[in-house]
C-alpha cells in the first residue's frame, strides 16, 4: 500500500493506482475527456491536470497517467490547476465548439470567453475511438495517421477497413460527435445555453448533417 496526500487528506492506495483513481475514490472531482474506465490511460486532453509537489518544485501532471507515489502531495483544485484547465477548455472550444461534451465542460468550469482563432474541427485527437477499437473491440480498424498538423484518425487509405465490424463503438465514445451542441453559431464559441431555464437551442433548427471526422464514417454506415 502507498500513502499519498490529496488536498490535505491522506489516503492509502494500492500500488499502480493512478492519481485520478485515487482522487475519485476520495470524491474529488477531476474532469476528463480522453479517459474512460476500461481503456488504457492516454493523457491526450490534459483536462485532468493536477498539481504535485510543493513550493517551487510543484508541477502540473496529467492525473490519468501519473501513478501514485509514497508521500506524494497532490492538489486537484489549486488556482494554478484551475487556470490550466480553463486554458485547455478554451483551446478545445477553439478547435471544436460544436461538441456538447466540451460545451458542457466549459460551462461547468466557468469558461466565459475563447480568445483563439475559431476553427471548426471534427476531431480533437483524444484517441478514445482508437483505443476503443483496439482494446475493447479488438478490431484495430482505425488509428492515427500522419503527424503534426496533418495528424488525423481514420482507416488506412481512407477506405472501408476489412477489420471493421461496424460496431459503432468509436462513435459511442467520441466526445466530438456523439452529442452535438446545436446552438453555437460560427462566431460564438461559448454556448452556455443549457444553463438557461429555457435553453435557446430548443427553438432552433436541428442540424441535419451528421458530423464525423471519418470519411467514410464507419459507424454511420450501419444505417445504410
Amino acid at each position: 500500500m502507498i500513502t499519498l496526500t490529496i488536498n490535505g487528506l491522506e489516503v492509502p492506495v494500492e500500488k499502480g493506482t493512478t492519481l485520478l483513481e485515487a482522487a475519485r475514490f476520495l470524491g474529488f472531482p477531476i474532469p476528463t475527456l480522453c479517459h474512460m474506465d476500461g481503456l488504457s490511460p492516454y493523457g491526450a486532453c490534459r483536462l485532468c491536470v493536477v498539481e504535485i509537489g510543493e513550493g517551487p518544485k510543484a508541477k502540473l501532471v496529467s492525473s490519468c497517467t501519473y501513478p501514485a507515489q509514497e508521500g506524494l502531495i497532490v492538489r486537484t483544485a489549486s488556482s494554478r490547476v484551475l487556470r490550466a484547465r480553463k486554458m485547455v477548455l478554451e483551446l478545445l472550444l477553439a478547435s471544436c465548439p460544436q461538441s456538447k461534451t466540451i460545451q458542457d465542460l466549459a460551462s461547468a468550469h466557468n469558461v466565459r470567453q475563447q480568445r483563439f482563432r475559431q476553427e471548426h474541427e471534427d476531431c480533437i485527437l483524444c484517441g478514445l475511438c482508437v483505443r476503443m477499437c483496439k482494446e475493447q473491440m479488438v478490431a484495430k480498424a482505425i488509428g492515427f495517421r500522419g503527424r503534426g498538423q496533418t495528424r488525423s484518425i481514420g482507416t488506412p487509405f481512407d477506405i472501408r477497413s476489412e477489420e471493421c465490424r461496424l460496431c459503432g463503438g468509436c462513435m459511442y465514445v467520441c466526445p466530438a460527435c456523439q452529442l452535438r451542441c446545436t446552438y453555437t453559431e460560427p462566431e460564438k464559441a461559448v454556448c452556455g445555453g443549457c444553463a438557461n431555464v429555457s435553453p435557446p437551442c430548443v427553438e432552433k433548427e436541428q442540424f441535419d448533417d451528421m458530423m464525423c471526422y471519418m470519411t467514410p464514417c464507419v459507424a454511420c454506415e450501419i444505417q445504410e
Binding site: 484495430k140 480498424a141 482505425i142 488509428g143 492515427f144 503527424r147 482507416t155 488506412p156 487509405f157 477497413s161
Partner: peptide
C-alpha cells in the same frame, strides 16, 4: 501487425 499501425508509421 495491424494495417492501421503500419499505415500510421508509413504516414508519420
Amino acid at each position: 501487425r495491424s494495417l492501421v499501425d503500419i499505415y500510421g508509421v508509413a504516414t508519420f
